[in-house]
Design a protein around this nucleic acid. Structure first.
Length: 397
DNA sequence: TCTGGGGTCCTAGGACCC
DNA sequence: TCTGGGGTCCTAGGACCC
């Protein structure tokens, strides 16, 4: 079979790395990027912990209150997503100088298919070394790189050498490399699946190759064969450059659980505005609108509806979202989080083309375009709904 | 110690059509 | 008279990833 060379590039403690680079006085200190700890009462989680902070037992996705208890004297910073997105663009730019086949996985991670670049740049290991050097020289950041014949093994390999790692798994070595690792390392095995498999006595990746895929299907409700192929180190998925969003959404957790209809309504409207603006930004419109509500006890519900005609404006989406919300929350419902999502995305044709089809430009879209323009020029605070200002005052913020 | 916010993918069941 | 089977679209929930 045709032998591919795949790289998985994964930045080390990315947000923390960027902050330390920009503020050298932070170097060597335990640094936590994430929610405001508020003296141990904060509600969010840790986004990234520096390696110094990890020595205290702090890690990503941990409640910020736990992190604060473990290390109150750490430096706590709020994430600056706009900055990280800019750095991410610079990283992707570097990666694209090695091959066109770059598939971003997240803001700080990507797969590269360098099969066709070997003639120009050398072996997979050579290319990995050069990628790391470029990222270090140009951006003063470190990345860990895994090299293998497919995406899954490359991903596990990059994780294996962290931080500042370079791990190559040669073709044929995959089973020996994977067998002793815990099943949790398999892509798609999270806490639930891990527990189901553990109860069946399966704890190492190698264990999965010693049962039948039907047995796995029965225990997990499908996906057994895929899991088994990964466990053997087989993964045919191609590295495919960006395909665009399938959904766009925003959600927010209240500082304190609330049953205040006005607060809920105003927050829903604010979220809807952000979603609609991003839809227009990406030149897409949505046919499906979803509202999510999480109650104080963490039970979570969603309601969605599909529109007759795709929408990309607050004027069209907000009433739908409000209606869905009313079916989710009673007057007494104590709410922890609400969210708005747009999916079933279709490309929104430029207005010139709409007219070609004999459809007049809509007023709501003209208004939205004007608002987008003002926000671009003067920032988000320049324009807002009277209702949002009112609710903000009401909360005393 | 309670658990963010951005996403993707999958499953099950119902409606509806032929 | 009670009843097939395939296909598509839709909704709700959940697992998982970073």
């Amino acid at each position: 079979m045709f032998q591919r060379t795949i790289l998985h590039v994964d930045m080390d403690a990315f947000y923390a790395g960027v902050e330390v680079r920009d503020r050298p006085e932070l170097r060597g200190k335990p640094l936590v990027v994430g929610a405001d700890p508020k003296g141990g009462k904060g509600r969010g989680i840790v986004a990234t912990a520096s390696y110094e902070a990890r020595r205290f037992g702090i890690h990503s996705a941990q409640p910020i209150s736990t992190a604060y208890r473990l290390c109150p004297h750490a430096v706590y910073l709020l994430p600056d997503m706009a900055k990280y997105a800019r750095v991410s663009d610079e990283i992707m730019h570097i990666l694209l100088s090695f091959t066109d086949l770059v598939e971003p996985v997240s803001i700080d991670e990507a797969f590269l298919d360098v099969t066709g670049s070997r003639r120009l740049f050398g072996s997979g290991r050579d290319i990995a070394r050069r990628v790391k050097e470029r990222i270090r020289a140009d951006l003063e950041l470190t990345a860990s790189v895994g090299v293998a014949a497919n995406k899954f093994v490359a991903k596990v390999a990059s994780d294996f050498g962290k931080p500042d790692g370079l791990v190559v798994v040669e073709p044929g070595e995959e089973p020996a490399f994977l067998e002793p690792l815990p099943i949790r390392r398999l892509w798609g095995v999270g806490p639930k699946t891990e527990e189901v498999l553990r109860r069946a006595g399966l704890t190492r990746i190698g264990d999965l190759t010693r049962v039948t895929s039907e047995d796995l299907d029965r225990r997990l409700g499908g996906g057994g064969e895929h899991l088994q192929r990964l466990a053997r180190g087989v993964d045919d998925r191609p590295v495919s450059p960006e395909e665009g969003y399938k959904s766009i959404g925003h959600e927010t957790t209240f500082e304190r659980d609330t049953a205040d209809r006005e607060v809920l309504g105003a927050t829903l409207l604010a979220l809807t505005r952000k979603v609609a603006a991003r839809l227009r930004d990406h030149d897409v419109a949505c046919r499906t609108v979803t509202v999510k509500l999480r109650e104080a006890d963490f039970t979570t519900h969603t309601r969605r509806t599909t529109l007759d005609e795709a929408a990309d404006t607050e004027e069209r989406i907000a009433p739908v979202a409000a209606r869905l919300m009313r079916t989710l929350a009673g007057d007494q419902t104590l709410v922890r989080l609400i969210g708005v999502y747009a999916s079933n995305l279709v490309s929104a044709r430029p207005r010139g083309q709409l007219e070609l089809f004999g459809r007049p430009p809509r007023k709501d879209r003209d208004l939205a375009a004007a608002v987008d323009d003002i926000v671009r020029r003067f920032g988000d605070a320049a324009i807002t709904r009277a209702r949002l200002v009112h609710a903000g005052r009401k909360r005393g913020s």
